[in-house]
Write a protein that binds this DNA or RNA. Structure first.
Lengths: 151, 151
DNA sequence: TTTAATTATTCAACTGTTTAACTATTAACC
DNA sequence: GGTTAATAGTTAAACAGTTGAATAATTAAA
């Protein structure tokens, strides 16, 4: 069995993660078509999941400045996908929701992305993919922990 | 043991890959600092690996149009990181190389990125990370195959 | 030799991003 | 209570990256 050095493992990780991300992004863009950009789809997904959120929350989750969120939300608001509602108790905050149109568009694109991901996930043994995701989740925890430690 | 449905696995994959990518990109940006963007670093890495290449080749690898490559290469050329040389036999093609400055900058940033990736890879069992990378590579092959089949 | 195809570039338009300045509102404190 | 902080969100300028369409220069094919 080949004993790989740490350096080789790191090189391999950098190479594979770059390649997988590039291709996956391209495939997702193909699925969601011209109605939405990838970032807009991710925004739609997040708001759909939590129901209601604020710009500040999105900025934290997406790890960008609030002004970047304003820009992306405004574009989606112009397309009629997102609603903005002022909080009456604290008039600084603006709540973001999906409109009916936004929900419909999300569900339509989400269905296609699910089919896409499923089509390659099912090419693995169930045990292999479960183990893979377990490690991937652990990696996510390590990264999340490191990120919060730095900030 | 929990028997997870395909749908749950797909959901988990979408969520974890999104999160890992976002955080990893942010950490890499921290490491390479203000000299370079992430995309410019990836470009530097690719040219460093192959030695010499063309715009067409980069456009295929990065899965973008050639005009996007022209833009990014011009910016790096202005910083003195990349050399452009016309082929004397086929005067349409322009070869791209790293300058000495480009190589130095790549090595400097690459060292820091390696240290970063190593710092979280070494938090896993060697066997776990090797298995993870094996599956990740397989996923990369499936995606590459699918991409080439579509085009 | 005319017509294709290929390689790279330019330009306009757009998305996403940051930084800095600003508005409006709420919280803290003496 | 009135002044000073802090917070939520927006705006504007500037930049990186992207696409699509048009163009120039060159080579390949008919």
């Amino acid at each position: 069995m080949c004993e790989k050095s740490i350096k080789d493992l790191v090189d391999l990780y950098i190479h594979v993660s770059f390649s997988v991300n590039k291709i996956a992004e391209g495939l997702i863009k193909e699925q969601i078509g011209s109605d939405l950009t990838n970032d807009q789809h991710y925004t739609l997904r997040y708001i759909n999941k939590v129901g209601t959120c604020t710009s500040t929350e999105l900025a934290e989750v997406f790890d960008v400045k609030k002004s970047a969120i304003t820009a992306i939300i405004t574009r989606m608001w112009e397309k009629g996908l997102i609603q903005r509602t002022r909080d009456e108790n604290d008039r600084r905050v603006v709540y973001l929701n999906l409109t009916e149109k936004g929900e419909e568009l999300f569900l339509k694109t989400e269905e296609r992305i699910h089919a896409l991901v499923e089509s390659f996930i099912t090419q693995f043994d169930q045990t292999e993919i479960v183990q893979f995701l377990k490690t991937y989740e652990k990696l996510n925890e390590i990264l999340t922990e490191r990120k919060s430690r730095v900030e």
